[in-house]
Measured scan of single mutants.
Amino acid sequence: SIEEEIKKAEEAKEKGKTFIHGDFVATTEELLDELLKRLRKKL
């Protein structure tokens, strides 16, 4: 679910890890923020 993806992305951000969502690879905090923004729009 979208909620689960958001939670996983937030955890990755806290730990400074890379998060992959489909073909979107978030390797930096900026990219994770962008991904979180996109996911929240889908809610």
Rank of each mutant, 00 (worst) to 15 (best):
Ser1Gln: 09
Ser1Met: 09
Ser1Arg: 10
Ser1Asp: 11
Ser1Ile: 09
Ser1Lys: 08
Ser1Val: 09
Ile2Lys: 05
Ile2Phe: 04
Ile2Leu: 13
Ile2Gln: 04
Ile2Pro: 03
Ile2Ala: 05
Glu3Cys: 15
Glu3Gly: 06
Glu3Phe: 10
Glu3Lys: 10
Glu3Gln: 10
Glu3His: 09
Glu4Pro: 03
Glu4His: 09
Glu4Ala: 12
Glu4Gln: 09
Glu4Trp: 05
Glu5Asn: 08
Glu5Val: 15
Glu5Pro: 03
Glu5Lys: 08
Glu5Leu: 15
Ile6Asn: 01
Ile6Ser: 04
Ile6Asp: 01
Ile6Tyr: 03
Ile6Gly: 02
Lys7Phe: 06
Lys7Asn: 07
Lys7Ser: 06
Lys7Asp: 02
Lys7Leu: 10
Lys7Arg: 14
Lys8Pro: 01
Lys8Gly: 07
Lys8Trp: 07
Lys8Ala: 11
Ala9Gly: 03
Ala9His: 02
Ala9Cys: 14
Ala9Met: 06
Ala9Asn: 02
Ala9Thr: 02
Glu10Asp: 03
Glu10Thr: 09
Glu10Ser: 05
Glu10Arg: 07
Glu11Ile: 08
Glu11His: 06
Glu11Asn: 06
Glu11Gln: 08
Glu11Gly: 03
Glu11Arg: 07
Ala12Gly: 00
Ala12Cys: 14
Ala12Val: 00
Ala12Glu: 03
Ala12Asn: 02
Ala12Tyr: 03
Ala12Phe: 02
Ala12His: 04
Ala12Ser: 03
Lys13Arg: 12
Lys13Ile: 04
Lys13Cys: 15
Lys13Gln: 05
Lys13Val: 04
Lys13Phe: 07
Glu14Ala: 15
Glu14Asn: 10
Glu14Arg: 14
Glu14Asp: 08
Glu14Pro: 01
Glu14Gly: 10
Glu14His: 10
Lys15Ala: 12
Lys15Glu: 08
Lys15Met: 13
Lys15Trp: 05
Lys15Phe: 09
Lys15Asp: 08
Gly16Arg: 03
Gly16Thr: 03
Gly16Asn: 11
Lys17Asp: 15
Lys17His: 13
Lys17Pro: 14
Lys17Ser: 09
Lys17Arg: 06
Thr18Val: 13
Thr18Lys: 12
Thr18Pro: 13
Thr18His: 13
Thr18Phe: 10
Thr18Asn: 13
Thr18Tyr: 12
Phe19Arg: 14
Phe19Trp: 04
Phe19Asp: 14
Phe19Val: 15
Ile20Lys: 03
Ile20Met: 07
Ile20Cys: 15
Ile20Tyr: 09
His21Gln: 11
His21Ser: 14
His21Tyr: 15
His21Asn: 08
His21Phe: 13
Gly22Thr: 03
Gly22Ala: 06
Gly22Tyr: 08
Gly22Arg: 00
Gly22Asp: 11
Gly22Lys: 01
Gly22Ile: 12
Gly22Met: 10
Asp23Trp: 11
Asp23Gly: 05
Asp23Leu: 05
Asp23Ala: 06
Asp23Thr: 05
Asp23Cys: 13
Phe24Ile: 09
Phe24Tyr: 09
Phe24Pro: 01
Phe24Asn: 02
Phe24Met: 06
Phe24Gly: 04
Phe24His: 06
Phe24Gln: 04
Phe24Thr: 05
Phe24Lys: 00
Phe24Val: 06
Val25Lys: 05
Val25Trp: 11
Val25Met: 09
Val25Pro: 04
Val25Gly: 02
Val25Gln: 07
Ala26Thr: 04
Ala26Pro: 03
Ala26Leu: 08
Ala26Gly: 06
Ala26Arg: 00
Thr27Asp: 15
Thr27Gln: 06
Thr27Glu: 13
Thr27Arg: 02
Thr27Pro: 02
Thr27Ile: 09
Thr27His: 12
Thr27Ser: 14
Thr28Ile: 12
Thr28Gln: 01
Thr28Ala: 07
Thr28His: 02
Thr28Glu: 03
Thr28Tyr: 07
Glu29Ile: 15
Glu29Met: 13
Glu29Thr: 13
Glu30Asn: 05
Glu30Thr: 08
Glu30Gln: 10
Glu30Pro: 03
Glu30Trp: 09
Glu30His: 09
Glu30Leu: 08
Leu31Ile: 06
Leu31Gly: 05
Leu31Pro: 01
Leu31Met: 14
Leu31Thr: 06
Leu31Val: 05
Leu31Lys: 04
Leu31Ala: 12
Leu31Gln: 15
Leu31Arg: 02
Leu32Phe: 14
Leu32Met: 02
Leu32Val: 03
Leu32Asp: 01
Leu32Gly: 00
Leu32Tyr: 12
Leu32Thr: 01
Asp33Phe: 04
Asp33Ala: 04
Asp33Ile: 07
Asp33Asn: 09
Asp33Ser: 02
Asp33Cys: 15
Asp33Gln: 02
Asp33Met: 05
Asp33Pro: 00
Glu34Asn: 03
Glu34Ile: 08
Glu34Pro: 01
Glu34Cys: 03
Glu34Gly: 01
Leu35His: 03
Leu35Asp: 03
Leu35Met: 04
Leu35Pro: 00
Leu35Val: 04
Leu35Thr: 01
Leu35Phe: 05
Leu35Gln: 02
Leu35Arg: 01
Leu35Asn: 02
Leu36Ser: 01
Leu36Phe: 00
Leu36His: 02
Leu36Arg: 01
Leu36Gly: 01
Lys37Asn: 12
Lys37Asp: 13
Lys37Gly: 10
Lys37Glu: 15
Lys37Gln: 13
Lys37Arg: 12
Arg38Lys: 11
Arg38Phe: 13
Arg38Leu: 15
Arg38Met: 14
Arg38Pro: 00
Arg38Ser: 09
Leu39Asp: 00
Leu39Pro: 00
Leu39Met: 08
Leu39Thr: 00
Arg40Gly: 05
Arg40Thr: 08
Arg40Lys: 09
Arg40Ser: 05
Arg40Ala: 08
Arg40Cys: 12
Arg40Phe: 06
Arg40Pro: 01
Lys41Pro: 01
Lys41Glu: 14
Lys41Phe: 00
Lys41Asp: 13
Lys41His: 10
Lys41Thr: 11
Lys41Met: 09
Lys41Leu: 09
Lys42Glu: 14
Lys42Ser: 12
Lys42His: 11
Lys42Asn: 08
Lys42Pro: 01
Leu43Arg: 08
Leu43Asp: 02
Leu43Tyr: 02
Leu43Trp: 02
Leu43Thr: 04
Leu43Ile: 08
Leu43His: 05
Leu43Glu: 02
Leu43Asn: 03
